[in-house]
Design a protein around this nucleic acid. Structure first.
Length: 722
DNA sequence: CGGCAGCGGCAATAC
DNA sequence: GCCGCTGCCG
């Protein structure tokens, strides 16, 4: 059999990674080194050469997009459909599949529902109210972080000790317990729970685990550096006792520590999985030598690396352009001007990526692009299925499928408004709580009991008959006709049509788009309930963010969402201390290293041209900030950089005595931005920024020996220097 | 119920 | 500076 097509066009390291027959294989794949290619070809190798059935392979990714791409590329390479036998999906998707198959053993009802981040927050808000927690002291967001953080580490409320009885922990645990109780009672599970349950299912049911251990002969994991504790434990319980496993990842691209990812997992891998072979992919096919030199130089400042150095056989390329802008508008104008230059060369708009650290930066950039008449597209932002109007429409559909869905009832009982006020809903909640009923059953009982005012009672009846009508009328319809009927007859379309503003227009369009999504939906299980599968998919899939790709446009996104993408030309805006690295990460060495990895990710997105820019003065959150050039740029060898001088058409004030409010306040205290000061401990430095007033006034000083620090002016006792 | 004013908070974000 | 939530009022 000729299998050369599997190995042709691969370099030695890639070929090694594709054919390795070690029990454990860890592929450290640098940016642009052909990682996905190796994964896809390795799967083809397993099937075509080693003779594994696709049925015996499991491949796990983090995003649906990556899973789709992998499946597509395998099918392309093997020249045929991969019937459902092979398990390719996200951790969450596969966990869901597992729990659906063994719902009872996982102690879940067959029709369990997924609680997404937004639904989770709503539920927590209600719990806070129920427990009489003051929202300003106990923001529901905090409980959400607490719960998800612990679940990501595999801890349920019962696992968390609170020996000191400290108020914070006591309160959080109380919320966590109540939350667990309600979720269990209502048969809903959040994203973290999906993973934790799947882990517990295997841990507590050896027979089920054994079935999968016998079934799968090889597991492959993409983006291994992003796994959290539960995902790692899940892989370990499945494959720890000798099932061959391939992990592909790059410790230098671990940028999701804040959502539970544990970079240590990739370091731990060879200890937990027997006889691991480590293969490094260091040849880069994406960027010029100059860009790689810069990336290598930056990432070298991190400790605790597994170690890797990217190289290319390609050309040196042009130097990196660094632009010092006067302010963020000046920076945005520089970017749009350079984009216009690039378009005069052989670049298309879609070849250009503009990356930034935080979403708040995008507005200024957008304004400049609009002014220049350059079409652009923003990646990320709100997921399609997270939009309010879509969630409302889905809630109606969920109620059609299952009346006892409290989350859905809460959402649409009075949307569009139908005279069921907060009082009435509170009565229903109370009744449901007291009688251990779902909200739907509770409201039916209340209608029968007639304890409500006639008006409220009628309104409730109206809601019940609406849902029953939607269910009956659409019972025999196709999925898309059903969606269409529901958004019309629930009144959602009319509701948003009479709303004012651009937003309303977009909402109506999104609802129409939902019909399109339903039309093109292909159920995985032909015999299963199509509506149910559609709803599950909606909960687990962000929806295609690429939908609007009809026009050739400049690509705007955060550095995080740029991971995995590449552009011939890349702009990284705002390379400033306090912005990138972000202020909140600067003090903590491990978070600072994560910021540096983010810089590495950003730099390695560029194929041919890289532009870095920073603003000497930046308005953010209504505050004027004077930040210095990012340390990450200073880590790039100077021969790689071509610094562009400040555009002389921009008038640059010669002193800092301007009229901005923050500067005036600074002046009142005798401190001027740019002022040299002396601190009794930290020594001499320059004032970079100033915020707050009176007792809360703080200054940021860049000390010559200690780096930059924020000081409370009142206590700092700064001595002004000449 | 809808509209508006006031207030707090504010990184990144897949599933 | 802006968004979103709350709370008050008509």
């Amino acid at each position: 059999m000729d299998v050369s097509y599997i190995l042709d066009d691969l370099n030695d390291a890639q070929r090694d990674a594709v054919t390795a027959d070690s029990p454990g294989t860890l592929v450290l794949a640098g940016a642009g080194s052909g990682k996905t290619r190796v994964l896809v070809h390795r799967i083809a190798w397993k099937i075509k050469v080693e003779g594994l059935s696709p049925y015996a392979i499991m491949a796990v990714t983090f995003t649906n997009k990556a899973a789709r791409e992998m499946r597509g590329r395998i099918e392309e390479l093997l020249g045929g459909q991969l019937h459902g036998g092979m398990w390719v999906g996200t951790f969450h998707g596969l966990a869901h599949r597992l729990l659906k198959a063994h719902a009872a053993d996982a102690k879940l009802p067959d029709n369990f529902q997924i609680l997404d981040a937004d639904d989770q927050q709503r539920l927590l808000k209600r719990i806070h109210r129920e427990l009489n927690l003051d929202d300003s002291r106990w923001p529901p967001r905090q409980s959400q972080y607490f719960i998800n953080g612990h679940k990501d580490e595999g801890r349920r409320s019962a696992h968390i000790d609170n020996p000191g009885g400290d108020l914070y922990l006591t309160t959080m645990l109380q919320v966590y317990q109540r939350y667990e109780q309600i979720c269990q009672q209502q048969g809903v599970i959040d994203f973290a729970e999906l993973l934790l349950r799947a882990l517990e299912l295997w841990r507590d049911n050896p027979a089920i685990l054994e079935h999968y251990q016998q079934r799968f002969k090889h597991v492959l994991v993409d983006e291994f550096q992003d796994t959290n504790a539960v995902q790692y434990a899940w892989l370990q319980i499945l494959a720890g006792k000798g099932m061959p496993i391939t992990a592909v990842g790059d410790d230098d691209q671990s940028i999701y520590g804040w959502r539970g990812a544990r970079i240590e997992n990739i370091q731990q891998f060879s200890k937990d999985f027997a006889d691991t072979r480590i293969i490094r992919l260091e040849q880069n096919y994406r960027s010029t030598a100059t860009i790689l030199k810069a990336a290598n130089a930056v990432i070298k400042h991190n400790s605790q690396r597994l170690g890797k150095e990217l190289w290319t056989s390609g050309e040196e390329g042009e130097p990196i352009t660094l632009f010092a802008a006067f302010n963020e508008q000046d920076e945005a104008r520089f970017i749009s001007d350079r984009i216009e230059d690039l378009l005069k060369e052989d670049y298309r708009r879609a070849d250009i990526g503009v990356l930034y650290r935080s979403n708040a930066q995008s507005r200024t950039l957008e304004e400049a692009l609009i002014r220049a008449g350059l079409p652009y597209r923003i990646y990320g932002g709100q997921r399609f299925y997270d939009r309010l109007e879509i969630k409302n429409a889905l809630a109606y559909l969920r109620l059609i499928a299952l009346r006892d869905d409290d989350t859905a009832v809460e959402r649409v009982i009075n949307t569009p408004t139908r005279g069921i006020g907060n009082r009435t809903v509170e009565t229903i909640r109370e009744y449901a709580r007291d009688h251990q009923l779902s909200l739907w059953r509770a409201l039916l009982a209340i209608i029968e009991g007639g304890g409500l005012a006639a008006r409220a009672n009628n309104a409730l009846r109206g809601f019940v008959s609406l849902i029953e009508d939607l269910a009956q009328q659409t019972a025999d319809m196709s999925l898309d006709a059903r969606v269409d009927y529901v958004i019309q007859h629930s009144g959602l379309i009319a509701f948003h049509e009479k709303e004012k503003g651009e937003k309303a227009q977009a909402r109506v369009e999104n609802l129409q788009e939902l019909i399109t999504a339903a039309k093109s939906f292909e159920p995985e299980d032909e015999d299963g309930d199509e509506l149910r599968q559609f709803l599950d998919q909606a909960a687990l899939d962000a929806g295609d963010q690429q939908a609007a790709e009809h026009e050739d446009s400049v690509q705007l996104m955060t550095l995080h969402s740029a991971k995995g993408l590449e552009f011939p030309a890349v702009f990284i805006a705002g390379v400033e201390e306090n912005l990138f690295p972000h202020k909140m990460s600067i003090e903590d060495p491990s978070r600072l290293e994560e910021e540096r990895r983010l810089a590495y990710v950003g730099i390695t997105r560029a194929e041919r041209k890289l532009f870095l820019s920073y603003a000497e003065s930046r308005r953010l959150y209504g505050q004027e900030n004077f930040n210095s050039l990012s340390r990450f740029v200073r880590e790039i060898p100077s021969e790689c950089i071509d610094e562009v001088r400040i555009n002389n058409t921009v008038s640059r004030p010669t002193s800092f005595a301007s009229h901005s409010a923050s500067q005036q306040r600074a002046a009142e205290s005798g401190i001027v931005l740019g002022q040299r000061v002396l601190h009794s401990i930290f020594g001499a430095g320059v004032v970079l920024s100033f915020e707050g007033q009176g007792a809360s006034a703080r200054v940021q000083v860049n000390f010559e020996d200690e780096g930059s620090k924020w000081l409370v002016l009142q206590y700092a006792n700064l001595e002004l220097l000449q």
